[in-house]
Amino acid sequence: MKWIALLLNIIALPLLASAQISLSDEQPTQGEAVAVTLGQPERLLVVTYRPNSSVAMRDTLRAEQPTTVFRWTPRKPGIVSLSSSAASRNVSVRFNGLSGSGIIVMGIAATLLFGGAAFAFRLLFKDEAEDGTLDMELDHFPDT
């Protein structure tokens, strides 16, 4: 909850101002240029990849003269924040094809977690060992 204020700003302010930033493709793709149109002329457009994270990355698009249209080629897929001095909005940049590393991590994680759970379930219902009693509890757990 500590970021409620921040989060509400993230939600509310970009939406308030989103009408002032529009894209030629509302779902841009990594590596493919799009035109970003602003409501009023600006010199700078700040692009933040993975905003509000510990690995956020920032690019700045500059224009020599104030302009309402910037050309932007997304370098990375994911949630990206576009902000000028007057407006800001989030866009989702889609992957250009499949992400090999993403599929590998997903596969490994799913195999470990679901495989681990299936393995443990199998052990759970395996027949009990011949001698299932704990005969050493008094040594191990003295009543202090």
Binding site: M1, K2, W3, I4, L7, L8, I10, I11, P51, N52, S53, G78, I79, S81, R89, N90, V91, S92
Partner: peptide, 17 residues
Amino acid sequence: FVFALNPAGTTLSLSFF
């Protein structure tokens, strides 16, 4: 992701907002 909503937040803010 589809709606460009940022998942950074806390249990309460994500669940309710």
